[in-house]
Simulated assay, not measured.
Amino acid sequence: MPRKRAFSPAHAGPAHDAPLSELNITPLIDVMLVLLVMMILTLPTVLHKVAVDLPQGSAPPGETVTHPLVLARDGVVTLDGVAVNDAAMPARFRALKADPAALLVMRTDPEARYDRFDQVLAEVKRAGITRLGFAGNEAMVE
């Protein structure tokens, strides 16, 4: 019967006695790649900015004329209680822009589609109206 030889470090040879001179950096590279991908995915949301022109003062309450702009659930827009179609909207907004005492207050139904809200708000911006307020957020206050 042949005798089995037990493993001992003495029989391992000089290559196994030397300290490890190379570091396995593959796990480090994997972690760095995961972090890089996470940064690439999150940076666009962090850098997304919306320019908002905030008011620089307050006008005396007697000098403003409030014009309610209501966006209904079905997308119908009313200005001062009168329905306004998309074609007539720019002319009505330009008339408000010409009045320095006009204050446009926008109230949107919570069930209205966001793309319709965005279209109406874009028309307000194209008309150059800077005196704009939003109403209807009272339900969000605790």
Score class of each variant (00 low, 15 high):
105 V>Y: 08
121 L>Q: 03
80 D>G: 10
51 A>S: 07
30 D>Q: 09
119 Q>V: 00
94 R>Q: 13
91 A>R: 06
6 A>G: 08
99 D>G: 04
44 P>A: 12
82 V>G: 07
37 V>C: 05
84 V>N: 12
77 V>L: 09
99 D>L: 11
122 A>K: 00
43 L>W: 14
15 A>F: 12
116 R>K: 08
75 G>D: 02
142 E>C: 01
70 V>H: 04
138 E>N: 04
60 P>V: 07
101 A>I: 03
22 E>K: 07
58 S>T: 01
71 L>W: 06
99 D>V: 03
118 D>E: 04
60 P>R: 15
19 P>M: 07
30 D>R: 14
25 I>V: 15
31 V>D: 01
123 E>Y: 02
140 M>P: 03
135 A>D: 14
9 P>I: 02
48 H>Y: 01
77 V>S: 01
131 R>N: 11
62 G>N: 13
50 V>T: 02
53 D>P: 05
129 I>C: 03
41 L>V: 06
65 V>Y: 04
32 M>T: 04
104 L>Y: 14
63 E>T: 07
136 G>L: 03
67 H>I: 11
66 T>R: 15
24 N>H: 11
68 P>M: 14
3 R>K: 15
100 P>W: 09
83 A>I: 11
94 R>L: 08
112 A>K: 03
49 K>R: 05
80 D>F: 09
71 L>Q: 00
125 K>I: 02
36 L>P: 03
42 T>C: 09
91 A>G: 09
90 P>C: 14
50 V>L: 02
84 V>E: 13
13 G>V: 06
141 V>L: 08
138 E>A: 03
81 G>K: 09
35 L>H: 12
122 A>S: 02
75 G>V: 00
122 A>C: 01
78 T>D: 09
109 D>V: 10
69 L>Q: 07
137 N>L: 10
101 A>Y: 06
134 F>W: 05
8 S>C: 15
60 P>E: 12
50 V>I: 02
27 P>F: 10
25 I>W: 09
18 A>F: 12
49 K>I: 00
54 L>F: 12
86 D>K: 10
84 V>W: 15
141 V>Q: 06
46 V>H: 14
37 V>W: 09
10 A>H: 15
2 P>W: 11
19 P>D: 10
21 S>C: 04
39 M>Q: 13
121 L>E: 02
42 T>L: 13
80 D>P: 09
11 H>Y: 11
61 P>Y: 10
141 V>I: 12
53 D>H: 13
88 A>N: 07
20 L>S: 02
80 D>S: 15
